[in-house]
Computed example of a mutant assay.
Amino acid sequence: MRPENCQTMPELRAAIDALDRELVAKLAQRAGYIDRAITLKTAQGLPARIDDRVEEVVANVRRHAQDLGYDAALAEQLWRVIIDWSITREETVLGAKAD
């Protein structure tokens, strides 16, 4: 349902809750790709943090946000938190594998 089609607060809240479930599902799916990156990086001897890739991801997110009329600075902030979490997860697992 589009936001402008919501006629009551309960209806609006239900739509937001449904969207939140979808967002969490997408974040969980993204985490699965991070887990796969750990395996691939281990096999290729790559570090968890690859600064050029971090900045490429951020630039992509900013561009997508702008294309959608969304606040690019906010999107960048959110993604930097997601990226930092992802790198920390990779470093934790990669460090454990090195032991």
Results as ranks from 00 to 15, higher is better:
E4Q: 14
E4N: 14
N5V: 09
N5A: 15
Q7E: 09
Q7W: 01
T8K: 11
T8Q: 06
P10G: 06
P10K: 00
E11Y: 00
L12K: 04
R13N: 14
A15S: 13
I16F: 09
I16M: 15
L19S: 13
L19V: 04
D20W: 07
D20R: 10
E22S: 08
E22G: 08
E22C: 03
E22H: 04
E22W: 06
L23A: 15
V24C: 02
V24E: 14
V24P: 08
A25M: 01
A25I: 05
K26E: 13
K26Y: 00
K26I: 01
Q29W: 03
Q29F: 00
R30A: 08
G32K: 06
G32N: 01
G32Q: 02
G32W: 01
Y33F: 10
Y33E: 08
I34T: 06
I34W: 01
D35Q: 11
D35W: 06
R36G: 03
A37C: 03
A37D: 07
I38N: 01
L40A: 07
L40D: 13
K41Y: 09
T42W: 13
A43N: 02
G45F: 05
L46I: 01
A48S: 07
R49A: 12
I50Y: 14
D51W: 12
D51Y: 14
D51G: 12
V57A: 05
V57Q: 07
V58C: 06
A59Q: 11
V61Q: 00
R62E: 14
R62G: 07
R62W: 13
A65K: 06
A65W: 10
Q66T: 15
Q66P: 02
Q66F: 06
Q66K: 10
D67I: 02
D67M: 14
L68I: 02
L68D: 12
L68G: 09
Y70D: 11
D71R: 04
A72K: 05
A72M: 08
A75M: 10
A75V: 12
E76S: 01
Q77K: 09
Q77Y: 12
Q77P: 04
W79I: 10
I82H: 10
I82Q: 11
I82G: 06
D84T: 15
S86R: 03
S86D: 08
S86E: 04
I87A: 01
R89H: 15
R89G: 10
R89E: 12
T92K: 06
T92S: 14
T92M: 06
V93M: 04
G95H: 01
G95C: 06
K97Y: 09
K97C: 07
A98R: 10
D99K: 08
